[in-house]
């Protein structure tokens, strides 16, 4: 009787079993929460992705209700690569406004909402200098009690804007608006591209963000 299965059927079966086992294990890990595909791809957004913080600081209160501008705490956003985290001195300016000033000797260890991956470098200053508002990427932070990401912050998302920056650009002077502030007058994205001298074809080579 001729053979029903070719010789390689053994190998195919074994490989299939191995892959099935692998898939089962991975599915189990995902179900147990050891591996979170959303976090792996960096695409989790929304309030459920809010990161717990060691202090009850609320942006909704400080930036929204009281109306303190972003730069009071994130002072270097227009000057350098980092937006900056507030020094204790800044918090104390209002909360410990005493004379003589008290000794400040503790530091708060904030949990980053979206740590940037090793090998990726982002420069806040140049984006701000191109009129991109804080809310464009970070969303309506002044409505958040606890900050969560509203964009995926994946490489694809960055590239989408780099390849077509016109919708995100803003005229000079208007980029510190929060989402709630009235939008700036309608502008022609192309005109802004020319104004800033941006060439999208030169914005998506690897060394723009990776080194």
């Amino acid at each position: 009787m001729p053979q029903l299965f070719p010789r390689r059927a053994d190998t195919i079966l074994r490989a299939a079993v191995a892959l099935a086992v692998l898939a089962l294990v991975l599915a189990g890990l995902v179900a147990r929460g050891v591996i979170d595909p959303a976090r792996l791809t960096g695409a989790a957004t929304g309030a459920q992705a809010a990161v717990p913080q060691p202090s009850d600081f609320s942006h909704r209160l400080h930036a929204g209700e009281i109306g303190i501008g972003c730069r009071m705490c994130h002072t270097s956003v227009a000057k350098g690569p980092e937006a900056g985290y507030p020094q204790q001195w800044t918090c104390a300016s209002c909360h410990l406004a005493l004379d003589p000033k008290p000794e400040l000797d503790w530091r708060v260890a904030w949990n980053r909402v979206r740590p940037l991956q090793e090998g990726v470098y982002f420069h806040h200053g140049i984006h701000v200098a191109r009129g991109i508002g804080c809310a464009t990427c970070h969303g309506p932070v002044e409505t958040m009690i606890r900050v969560f990401p509203v964009r995926e912050f994946t490489m694809q998302w960055c590239l989408d804007c780099h390849r077509d920056p016109a919708p995100a650009l803003g005229p000079p002077g208007a980029q510190f608006r929060t989402a709630a502030a009235p939008p700036p007058p309608a502008h022609e994205g192309g005109a802004l591209l020319a104004l800033y001298g941006i060439e999208p074809s030169r914005l998506d080579h690897c060394y723009v963000c990776h080194r």
């Binding site: 900056g84 985290y85 507030p86 020094q87 204790q88 001195w89 400040l104 000797d105 503790w106 530091r107 708060v108 260890a109 904030w110 949990n111 980053r112 740590p115 940037l116 991956q117 090793e118």
Partner: peptide, 11 residues
């Protein structure tokens, strides 16, 4: 990935 904590200055 990289450390997820950010510890700013006191002053």
């Amino acid at each position: 990935g990289p450390p997820a904590e950010a510890v700013p200055y006191v002053r």
